[in-house]
Amino acid sequence: MIRPVAHRLLLLRHCEAEPARGNEFGSAADQARPLTQAGHMMARRRGESMRRAGLVPDLVLCSPAMRTRQTYAGLLPFGEGARPEIRIEPTLYLAAPDELLARLRATSDSVHTILLVGHNPGLPALARYLNGVERALDSDFALGTLATFHVEVEERESIALTWKALGPRTAWLESFSQN
């Protein structure tokens, strides 16, 4: 017997960050860029909208850049009793879509909702790759954009084909919200 199992993928681009300081343009300087005041407010509004929509992740995968970590922190709290596992992973910093996909595919079958907090151009490219609905995702994600996908997978007896089966047109866009 095959029965569908619902999973949800949330792709969130970081909120507005300060520009690089002075003439520092390297990776370390870029990763150290904090959110602006407007970026902090944007993250809090995004968190409020996620709470209203009942979007509570089981797992948060976050780039190590300060702007992504501060964006995630601004979303909190998700609700009473919600304690998602958070993983700050260096490989997610400016990751290409295939790297993001590989990380998602390595997720445990017991995780039902993943929030991935990252950067352009990897997030929008991944969203376009996974999108299984007619609605197009032609543009890059503006700052603070959240794309919500419903992932329907098959479960055969005790073997669940979940995140490891993620591929082209396997996720269905539920919402696309720009701040």
Results as ranks from 00 to 15, higher is better:
Asn23Arg: 15
Asn23Ser: 13
Phe25Trp: 13
Gly26Gln: 07
Ser27Tyr: 06
Ser27Ile: 14
Ala28Pro: 00
Gln31Trp: 02
Gln31Ser: 13
Arg33Thr: 12
Pro34Cys: 10
Pro34Gly: 12
Pro34Ile: 12
His40Trp: 13
Met42Pro: 01
Met42Glu: 15
Arg44Ile: 06
Arg46Glu: 04
Gly47His: 02
Ser49Pro: 00
Ser49Cys: 05
Met50Ala: 03
Arg51Cys: 03
Val60Lys: 03
Val60Gln: 04
Ser63Leu: 08
Ser63Glu: 05
Pro64Tyr: 07
Arg69His: 02
Thr71Gln: 01
Thr71Gly: 00
Ala73Val: 01
Leu76Lys: 07
Pro77His: 05
Pro77Ile: 05
Ile86Asp: 00
Arg87Gly: 00
Ile88Asp: 00
Ile88Leu: 04
Pro90Lys: 08
Thr91Lys: 07
Thr91Pro: 00
Leu94Glu: 10
Leu94Asn: 11
Leu94Lys: 11
Ala95Arg: 12
Ala96Asp: 15
Ala96Glu: 15
Asp98Glu: 15
Glu99Tyr: 02
Glu99Cys: 13
Glu99Leu: 14
Leu100Ala: 08
Leu100Gln: 10
Leu101Ala: 10
Ala102Ile: 05
Arg103Asp: 02
Arg105His: 06
Ser110Leu: 05
Val111Trp: 03
Val111Ser: 02
His112Ile: 01
His112Phe: 03
Leu115Ile: 07
Leu115Cys: 04
Leu116Tyr: 05
His119Glu: 14
Pro124Gln: 14
Pro124His: 12
Pro124Val: 09
Pro124Ile: 13
Ala125Cys: 12
Ala127His: 06
Tyr129Met: 15
Tyr129Cys: 13
Leu130Asn: 08
Gly132Cys: 06
Gly132Glu: 05
Glu134Leu: 08
Arg135Phe: 02
Arg135Asp: 04
Ala136Glu: 06
Asp138Gly: 12
Ser139Asp: 12
Phe141Ile: 11
Leu143Pro: 03
Thr145Lys: 06
Thr145Arg: 09
Ala147Lys: 03
Thr148His: 01
Thr148Trp: 00
